[in-house]
Design a binder for these strands. Sequence first.
DNA 1: CAGTTTGTTCAAAAAAACTTGAACAAAATA
DNA 2: TATTTTGTTCAAGTTTTTTTGAACAAACTG
Lengths: 186, 186
Amino acid sequence: MNAFTVAKQTSMDAIDGLDTLDDWEDAVIDLFLHAANSFGLPKSYGQIYGLLFCRDHPLAMDEVLELLQISKGSASQGLRALRQLGAVSSVFAPGDRKERFVAESRLRKLVGGFLREQADPHLEKGLARLKQIESLVNYIQDVDARKRGARRHEILSGWHRQMSRLLPWVKMIVGKSDRLPQKSSD
Amino acid sequence: MNAFTVAKQTSMDAIDGLDTLDDWEDAVIDLFLHAANSFGLPKSYGQIYGLLFCRDHPLAMDEVLELLQISKGSASQGLRALRQLGAVSSVFAPGDRKERFVAESRLRKLVGGFLREQADPHLEKGLARLKQIESLVNYIQDVDARKRGARRHEILSGWHRQMSRLLPWVKMIVGKSDRLPQKSSD
DNA sequence: CAGTTTGTTCAAAAAAACTTGAACAAAATA
DNA sequence: TATTTTGTTCAAGTTTTTTTGAACAAACTG
């Protein structure tokens, strides 16, 4: 990258305001920071997603960490996790070695990714725990005590079944009319 | 409480095994510990709920903290929070000053309480943030930049609407056939 | 009313989660 | 191949959350 290119880009950014955060962008990033927290994700993930969500064009990792004032490590880990969740995807600009990132803005996809990466694994682990509980209950000698244990195992199995049923419905219901109808996208 | 009463209770507990935790109870408590964590609640809440869930009879706070080996403070705060969530309710045994607690085991109620105490407040806060974003977007001078902000606000508003729609469905779907049909309870 | 039981509060300690940045690796370039 | 660019890893540091327990308050009891 030569001096001319640097100068050109800097001035363009300054004109477009893309090398600083607008107040509304700060507010959006803050919204996602809190949203991430309430979904059990690190706040930096929310910040990164929020920034990309605001922008029309892909950002590279160094732009993200510069704009958000976070460390390289956070940016790297955050972007990887968000991609894993399907919340961001990377694009490679032709003739540029940098990987650039864009936010997925279809709620359906976001919810789907979250359920796949977070909810489904918990349900699987839960099933394993249920099996272990079942076998422990079978060792109980006292009849009444074993009945009590068995009853609890039944209840938990019922809950597990219901949660398993619920998730597909969530995927269905969310994303029925995603992104508002005006100006059809996708 | 006189010596006889103490001796009597101790022996009864020993016989029934109610003053120690069975292996299966440990496993159930551990299950709820992890579940609480994944719902963003302190693990002690999960432990307390799990213990009460295992037992047929109400437990007093001192029994809970003894069985789980947790502090008075944790037990007190945990029980209060769980009651607030509708996950436990307290009963007063006649002729006893102690408040005793039982777990709510209807998934519908648990989910309802969680949504009411956790999800609904988040949605409300989200709405407030959206309004603030909207007003910030209106201050943007540059037309294209304002369009970009307005578009983002629309998308977020759509998400908010969809999440608001989703929650009632969740309440409906969960608890359709709660607690397994056999041996009708409640 | 003095003593006991029951339960709450909250400052400090402990534990858990998150972030940082320097060292490292991989890939492109000269 | 030496150098630069880009990105990852992870031990150590920081922040946040949770737990503890001693002090306190309220309600009962003798």
